[in-house]
Design a protein around this nucleic acid. Sequence first.
DNA 1: AAGTGGTCTAGACCACTCT
DNA 2: GAGTGGTCTAGACCACTTG
Lengths: 242, 242
Amino acid sequence: MPRPAATEPGQSRYAALAAGLRQRIVAGEFGPGDALPNEQALAQAEGVALGTMRRALDLLAEQGLVQRVQGRGTFVRQGLAGAPMLRFFRFGQGPQQLPGSRILARHTRPLPAEPAQALGLPVGSPGLLIKRLRLLNQRPCLHETLWLPLPRCAALAEGDPALWGDLLYPLLAQRCGVLVHRAVETIGFGALAAAEARALGLPAGHPCAQVQRQAFDLAGQCVEWRRSLGDAQAFQYTVTLT
Amino acid sequence: MPRPAATEPGQSRYAALAAGLRQRIVAGEFGPGDALPNEQALAQAEGVALGTMRRALDLLAEQGLVQRVQGRGTFVRQGLAGAPMLRFFRFGQGPQQLPGSRILARHTRPLPAEPAQALGLPVGSPGLLIKRLRLLNQRPCLHETLWLPLPRCAALAEGDPALWGDLLYPLLAQRCGVLVHRAVETIGFGALAAAEARALGLPAGHPCAQVQRQAFDLAGQCVEWRRSLGDAQAFQYTVTLT
DNA sequence: AAGTGGTCTAGACCACTCT
DNA sequence: GAGTGGTCTAGACCACTTG
């Protein structure tokens, strides 16, 4: 009975195997889109039965870290595509197309209280502030305020934002090596301040829906704080309870 | 190789076993809270290996139909407790207590278009309309409009609503034999009409959050349509994306 | 045809809950 | 101690994808 190094005591074998694989993925041994070795190889390498290794891989798949494809292999999942923000809103009808982006401002600034807390950094740490407008059919529909932690996302503090394209997360991945893997959003309701209202072409004080987002990388570090504002009339969201 | 009756062709054995068990539960052979026979017995009865039956039971557990408890057994889950409506709102702070209910109206009426469609019944079918106010610390916080399908929920058309207690779903279970197992909710924002505003003690036209709910029984039949209105200021909801 | 994950078997032993 | 679900093994065969 070999009792190889369990990552945590009191854990089942397959959970330990999953944790080990998770670490290897986070460490970059397998990049996004890469295939893992096949089950047989992994099981043999760890000296464990095939079924046990399968269980570990299934666990990682449940957690969204890998994706299993019959006949092809087990692959490390890509990060979040980005811009699923619009799923909360119904602007016009017809096929939902990709929203455009217009950067309104970009500054390096000390982090204010709320973003700092969300990012898990001390207030006043260096941050990158971005304001942008999301557009659908050339019409402004969302006003966003973003804060990014600065040593880490420094690559975005330089260069012409006009060349960035419409999605932030692919940019974060390419330029900063930051892969967004999970996000938590909080929905609320308020009234538009003058500046945002003007940008959206709505009257000041107009009711708006507010979506605050924290985005996390593979290691669980928060790498973005964002607040998006849109017309409350257009807001709609569906949940299922069980 | 016995190939006993699969509930559906082209399905894996464990999926078929799960479907069979599901049917038996829906048919009432095992009521909410009852224990299923143990794995060994079920596997033997179906002439299948233990692991395969386990897989079927795990599937039902994933779907929320049963709950597995180590050392005790596998149990049919109770229906939704009810009143998780308040999870969308933060009224005051401190420990969230159970909301009170005051029935404002109850009528038997032909179903209007929207509730009829949600319930999967023709417009004009007999329905039971209920309006009620949810209260927290004696203060009104939610205004609800409910439609129930009528032959089925007839027991609620009689008797004194003042004796109903604060939760609808336990009532539906006891008096009508209707077990709510799943619900779908859609969130939107709007403005309060005069009547609702008055009931909630807010000015007419005040911004409000609106939660529409369809509740389903074990068989997947819609058994309730509901619209709840509350102060938009108090609204807050959190989602996780992966 | 070779390689992958998906299903199924038949058994052993462990961890937990109840009486 | 008896009974339950949870873990693990070692193997067989199937279904799907790709060259």
